[in-house]
Each structure stands twice: as structure tokens, then as C-alpha cells.
């Protein structure tokens, strides 16, 4: 019981991660894929922040010299990772717009069918 509840934040990480992967595998809509990818990346942010959390700790800013504080390094790291994630999503969305312009669809299976035809010709 303790392992399940005590580690519930890690369970959430795993659930989010698997949900993200599942969307990527099971959904053909490119937008949904990007959502899946974001969910997946979010789970990683969650993982990092969880690691830095110290029971009863505060942020080590503006409070003078606190005795216990959460690890600030992971927050810094994850800020960077979030920026990267946003950039990735932006590029992906831009690509989806272009794909929609040229293929008239954003369903991956339909695109693949079109591409198979092109390969034959």
C-alpha cells in the first residue's frame, strides 16, 4: 500500500508517459499526435520536478536562508526542457499547416495512401 500511494507521483508520470505513447501509436490525426507528444514530454517535466521536491521544503528565493528547500537545479533544467518542448510543438504545428496545404488532409493513414500512389507512379 505504501509503495503504491507513497510513490503516487511516479505512477502519474508513468501513466502520462504511457498515455502519450499510446496516442502516438494509436491515433492517425497529426494534431492528436502532437498532443500525444506534448503529454509525453509533460510527463518528463513532472518526473524532474518530482525528483527535486523535498518534504516541507520551500523555494530558496526571497526567504533569506531557509533550512530545507527544494532542489532548484531540476527546475532550471526543466525550464529549458519546456522551452525546447514549446519549440518542438511550434515547428510541428507549422509543418502540419504545410502538410494540410499540400495534401489536403492531416490524417497520417490517408497521407500514407497518397504517398504509396506517388511511389508507384
Amino acid at each position: 500500500m505504501n509503495t503504491i500511494l507513497g510513490l503516487y507521483n511516479y505512477w502519474m508520470v508513468i501513466i502520462l508517459m504511457m498515455a502519450g505513447l499510446y496516442i502516438l501509436i494509436a491515433r492517425y490525426n497529426l494534431i492528436k499526435k502532437i498532443i500525444g507528444l506534448s503529454v509525453f514530454q509533460t510527463s518528463i517535466f513532472y518526473l524532474y520536478i518530482t525528483m527535486g521536491k523535498v518534504e516541507g521544503g520551500t523555494a530558496p528565493i526571497l526567504t533569506g536562508d531557509p533550512a530545507t528547500y527544494s532542489n532548484p537545479v531540476v527546475h532550471v533544467l526543466i525550464l529549458t526542457a519546456i522551452v525546447v518542448g514549446v519549440a518542438t510543438t511550434a515547428v510541428a504545428l507549422a509543418l502540419i499547416v504545410r502538410i494540410h496545404e499540400t495534401y489536403d488532409t492531416i490524417e497520417d493513414d490517408e497521407i500514407k495512401a497518397i504517398e504509396m500512389l506517388e511511389e508507384d507512379s
Partner: peptide
């Protein structure tokens, strides 16, 4: 098809990086 190739690489590359 360069667009879709790029998109697929993006998804897979992001997973790899993640």
C-alpha cells in the same frame, strides 16, 4: 513528401530526445 518525412522525423526525434 519532404514535409511528412520531416514531421515523422520530428516525432521520432523528439521521442528519442525525450
Amino acid at each position: 513528401r519532404a514535409l511528412t518525412a520531416s514531421f515523422r522525423y520530428l516525432v521520432l526525434g523528439s521521442i528519442g530526445a525525450s
